[in-house]
């Protein structure tokens, strides 16, 4: 470096070190945040429900409870409400609801159903037509809150079409014979889903609807009948 005065700003080594430091710092920050997030998105269990602790990803046993999606005053957007709400949009974990005729699935039974459903969702490639939590393909509807979709409720078009009297049975029936119930020219193909797998998938969908997605999708099902906006004024 004796020949002439050189600036550190034009020094390769300086920039190499800077790049390393920046990358290292960003990575460490990401790892730290990851630890925090892991703690917050670990799946809860029945004990949390008994203690009225709201988890971002609740226990699989939520299939025993009534699930809704309501505006929460404190959060400023909709959140899943499990087992009835306290009037402010927080879960009470009280009101039960039958799931295939029962509301007493044990932790073990519920976990097994969810496990089967999650496996089925991957084995059947759901994500390459649908979106789950908004991620996937855009050929078919988002399934994040499918459990709460008005079409599957009593009086809804999908439930009526399958001739079943509960939404879990209607969903399971549709999943096993999608070709029999065309809802659109774009039909779901027959993926060889068995009765057991269908039950698992419905449990998976009900559980997914209870995940706290920070208000996504916004205003889910706010208009029941499709009235398309026309420019006012």
């Amino acid at each position: 470096m004796a020949e002439k005065k050189v600036s550190v700003w034009s020094d390769n080594r300086f920039w190499q070190r800077s790049a390393t430091w920046v990358t290292g710092f960003a990575s460490l920050l990401l790892i730290w945040l990851t630890f925090d997030t892991m703690g917050q998105i670990t799946m809860g269990n029945q004990k949390d429900i008994n203690n009225h602790i709201t988890k971002r990803v609740p226990s699989a046993t939520v299939i025993n409870y009534k699930v809704e999606y309501k505006m929460n005053q404190r959060r400023g957007h909709e959140v899943p409400v499990i087992g009835g709400d306290d009037g402010k949009g927080d879960s009470l974990f009280k009101v039960k609801e039958n799931f295939f005729g029962r509301d007493n699935y044990s932790q073990k039974e519920a976990d097994a159903l969810l496990h089967l459903g999650k496996l089925a969702s991957q084995a059947k490639n759901c994500m390459d037509c649908h979106t789950l939590l908004g991620n996937g393909a855009y050929y078919a509807p988002d399934l994040t809150k499918a459990w709460l979709d008005p079409a599957w409720q009593k009086g809804g078009t999908m439930q009526a079409m399958t001739g079943k009297s509960t939404k879990e049975e209607a969903m399971a029936e549709f999943l096993q014979n999608p070709g029999k119930y065309p809802t659109h020219a774009r039909m779901m193909p027959n993926l060889g889903i068995t009765q057991k797998e269908a039950v698992g998938l419905v449990a998976f969908l009900k559980h997914m609807a209870t995940i706290d997605t920070n208000g996504f999708p916004r205003g889910f099902g706010k208009i029941k009948e499709g009235v398309v906006y026309a420019r006012s004024k």
Partner: peptide, 13 residues
């Protein structure tokens, strides 16, 4: 203190 998040709806226009 619980953070307060407000998410106003975006107008169609």
């Amino acid at each position: 203190i619980e953070p307060l998040y407000i998410r106003p709806v975006i107008a169609i226009n």
